[in-house]
Simulated assay, not measured.
Amino acid sequence: GEGKNLSVIERILKTVKIPVELGGGIRNLQAVEKLLELGVERLILGSAAVKNPELVKEACTKYPGHIAVGIDAKNGDVAIEGWGEGSGVAATELAKRMADYGVATIIFTDISRDGMLSGVNSEATAALARACGVPIIASGGVASLDDIRNVKKYEKDGVAGCIIGKAIYTGAVNLPDALKIAAAKEE
C-alpha cells in the first residue's frame, strides 16, 4: 500500500511490449490513477474488494475494462491480506458483487493448491464463472500441460485462462507449448 516498487514497475513498462497487469497493495483511487497513467493495462484489486468495495466500484466506473479483482479462497471462503486473514465472505457472493460493479475479470486462486503443483481446481473456477457471469482466470496448482487442457474445457463456462507460475520455474510446463494449447480452437 506504499508504492515502494514504482521505479521497478516503470522499468518493466518501458522494457516490455506486452500489456502489463499489476496487483498488490493498491488501496486507493490515487494509486489506481497513477498506475494506469504509467501504462499498466489492468489492475488487480484483492483485499480492497472485501475491505473497501466502494474503491472497486469507483475504479470500475472511472476506468472500465481496466479493473480486475483477485479472489483468493480456501473451501469457498475468501482470504485477505496475503491469505493471513479470513474475511467471512463467500467467494461466490463476492464475485457476484464485483460483477455488479463492472470488473473486467476475476482472478480466482484456490489457495489450498497455489504453488503445490497439484492441479487446477477447474470445477470450482467454472462454477464461480457461471455464478457471476464475469470471465474468470484460474490461479493455483498448474502442474502440467494437462491442467491447461482441463481449464480450456471450461471456456464455454467463462473460464478465460490460467496463471502458471511454479510449473514454469521448475520446468514442469514449457511456456511455448502452453501457449499453443491455450490458442488452439476447441475441438
Rank of each mutant, 00 (worst) to 15 (best):
G1A: 12
G3R: 04
K4A: 11
V8G: 00
R11W: 06
I12C: 04
K14I: 14
P19I: 10
P19W: 05
P19D: 07
L22E: 12
G23S: 08
G24S: 02
G24P: 00
I26P: 03
R27D: 08
R27E: 08
R27N: 08
N28V: 11
L29C: 02
Q30Y: 07
A31N: 00
A31M: 11
V32D: 01
V32Y: 01
L36V: 12
G39N: 10
V40I: 15
V40L: 07
I44S: 10
S47Q: 05
A48T: 03
A48P: 03
A49S: 15
V50F: 00
P53F: 12
E54P: 02
K57V: 08
E58L: 11
K62W: 11
K62F: 09
H66W: 02
A68E: 13
V69T: 06
G70D: 04
A73E: 15
K74C: 08
N75I: 03
N75G: 00
D77I: 15
G84A: 12
G84R: 14
G86H: 13
S87H: 06
V89D: 06
T92P: 01
L94F: 02
K96Q: 15
K96N: 05
M98E: 15
Y101F: 14
A104H: 10
T105F: 00
T105K: 11
I106E: 07
T109A: 00
D110W: 04
I111V: 05
L117P: 06
S118A: 14
V120H: 00
N121H: 10
S122K: 09
E123P: 01
E123H: 11
T125N: 12
A126K: 02
A126D: 05
A127R: 14
A129N: 10
G133P: 03
G133N: 11
P135L: 11
I136S: 01
S139E: 09
S139Y: 07
G140D: 05
S144C: 13
S144W: 06
L145E: 15
L145T: 06
R149M: 05
E155F: 11
K156F: 08
K156P: 01
D157A: 13
G158V: 15
G158W: 02
I164S: 03
A167R: 12
A167T: 12
I168P: 04
Y169V: 09
G171E: 12
A172D: 14
P176Y: 13
P176Q: 15
D177L: 14
A178K: 07
K180S: 12
K180Y: 03
I181W: 00
I181Q: 00
A182H: 05
A184T: 14
K185Q: 13
E186L: 08
E187L: 10
